Computed example of a mutant assay.
Amino acid sequence: MKIAFMIIHVLICLAIIAVVLLQPAKVQGLSSAIAGGAETFFGKNKARTYEGKLSKLTTILMVLFVLSSMLLVYLLNK
């Protein structure tokens, strides 16, 4: 049982690494953050884009990571 959860935990970790590496860099400098950053932040279809889907997947994987970490701590201290 413990080994199965450890394998799932490692797979979640690898998925997080892959999803984070797939996300494009957001290095645009301070001037673009002040001038044009609001346009992309309040975009209507941001959740439907590739970046939006990766962001949502990252959030889901991070929640699963935290839950699996807590479950592993509970199982290993039992």
Rank of each mutant, 00 (worst) to 15 (best):
I17K: 06
L11Y: 04
L14R: 02
L22A: 09
A35T: 14
S32L: 07
V10N: 02
C13M: 14
T59W: 11
A25M: 04
A25R: 12
H9K: 11
A33G: 15
F41Q: 13
L21V: 01
K53I: 02
K56Y: 09
K56F: 15
P24K: 04
K26R: 10
F42A: 15
L14C: 13
T49M: 03
R48V: 10
S55C: 03
K53Q: 03
G37V: 05
L54K: 01
A47N: 03
F42E: 03
F42L: 12
K26M: 06
A18Y: 12
G37Q: 02
I8V: 14
G52S: 01
A25F: 09
G36Y: 10
Q28D: 10
S32H: 10
G52V: 00
K46D: 11
I16N: 09
C13L: 14
A33C: 14
L22E: 07
A4S: 09
G43F: 00
S31L: 09
V19Y: 06
I17D: 01
K26N: 13
I17H: 07
L21Q: 03
P24T: 01
T59L: 10
G52W: 04
R48M: 08
F42G: 09
I34Y: 15
L57E: 10
L14Q: 05
T40S: 14
A18V: 10
G36P: 00
L57K: 08
I60G: 03
T59V: 08
V19S: 10
E39Y: 05
L21D: 01
S55H: 08
T49I: 00
I17A: 14
L21F: 06
L14A: 14
S55G: 13
I34P: 02
F42N: 09
T49G: 06
G29V: 04
T58A: 13
I60T: 07
S32M: 08
K46N: 08
Q23A: 12
A4E: 12
A33L: 11
A18K: 10
K53W: 12
Q23Y: 07
A15F: 08
T58I: 03
A25S: 14
G37L: 05
V20T: 12
T49Q: 00
K46W: 12
L14D: 04
T59D: 06
E39P: 00
A35E: 10
S55A: 07
A38W: 10
A18P: 00
Q23F: 08
L14H: 05
L54A: 05
L22K: 05
G43R: 13
I12W: 00
K53M: 05
G29N: 02
L14V: 09
L22G: 05
G29F: 08
T49D: 00
A15Q: 02
G43L: 10
G43T: 03
H9F: 11
L21P: 00
I12Y: 02
A38D: 09
E51R: 04
E51T: 06
H9M: 07
L30E: 12
Q28R: 08
T49H: 01
I60M: 01
A25Y: 04
A15H: 11
A25L: 13
K46L: 12
Y50V: 04
A25I: 14
A4R: 07
L22Y: 09
Q28S: 09
M6E: 11
T58N: 12
Y50Q: 04
T58F: 12
A33D: 15
L21K: 06
A35Y: 15
K44N: 12
I16T: 11
A33F: 15
T40H: 08
I12H: 00
G52K: 00
L11C: 07
I34W: 11
G43Y: 06
C13H: 04
K53E: 01
